[in-house]
Write a protein that binds this DNA or RNA. Structure first.
Lengths: 123, 123
DNA sequence: GCAATAGTGAAGCACATACTTCACCAATGG
DNA sequence: CCATTGGTGAAGTATGTGCTTCACTATTGC
């Protein structure tokens, strides 16, 4: 069930990871959760830029953040990476992709009706 | 050794996959090998554009191509996806990254304790 | 040979977007 | 209270790059 959704935003995940700064951000957050200021000083960019990047990374479920007081702590969100993994597997074994469409037809209980790219940012 | 190399060009792989057209190209090639003209007509872009994209995809080992006669057949190269998979794993389990050097000395199997949160690593 | 097809190279354009500055608000701490 | 710190919003800039057109070469087929 989540496979379909995961494959859909895998596009957004890849678009997000296309940027080197965001990849560096992911690298930092993979080591430890950090605040916006921490990330900004680590990457030598402004806090505004970090905020924009974090917003993008959150939209595709690569990062989660919560603001306590005036500090926003960002941490890695595994769901984005999961979606990416699914995306890779589907391309590494194309026959799975073909069987997957059959799987969608057989499993219409989840209400997956539009095969088009909805790009629903489930937020 | 190969892991380091794979992790290095994973950056290029992600940069390449950041583009929607190149992702569509990968999707097509995951289904079947195709010529430049085939891909061009499938994506409604010029053959020149496809040629440029294929060059980028080849540079990061996502695509291999060989020219027989006047036709260049492009097919998926698994090495790019492999590198991406390694990249993901390294971020999904950051402690593995930290213990990477120790990994050479100690052949630890599991039971690793993360300093951050205790998310169960079900792998 | 001639025409059509497949692909490549150079050059330019147009749009996207990453980053900045400026201004502002909210929380912390002396 | 005032200063500092952490973060956000708006707006502008500028660099990158995806795609095109034009020109050209090299195969294929009649």
């Amino acid at each position: 069930m989540t496979e379909v959704a995961a494959r859909l935003d895998a596009n957004q995940v890849l678009a997000a990871l296309g940027d080197a700064t965001r990849r560096a951000l992911i690298d930092l957050l993979a080591q430890s959760p950090s605040s916006i200021s921490d990330l900004a000083s680590a990457l030598n960019v402004t806090k505004t830029a970090i905020g924009q990047h974090v917003a993008i990374l959150e939209a595709c479920h690569l990062v989660v953040s919560q603001k306590t007081g005036r500090v926003r702590i960002c941490r890695l969100d595994h769901r984005g990476l999961d979606a990416l993994q699914v995306w890779i597997e589907a391309r590494r074994h194309p026959w799975v992709e073909k069987l997957d469409r059959l799987d969608d037809l057989l499993e219409e209980e989840d209400g997956v009706s539009s095969p088009n790219d909805g790009t629903t940012a489930g937020v």
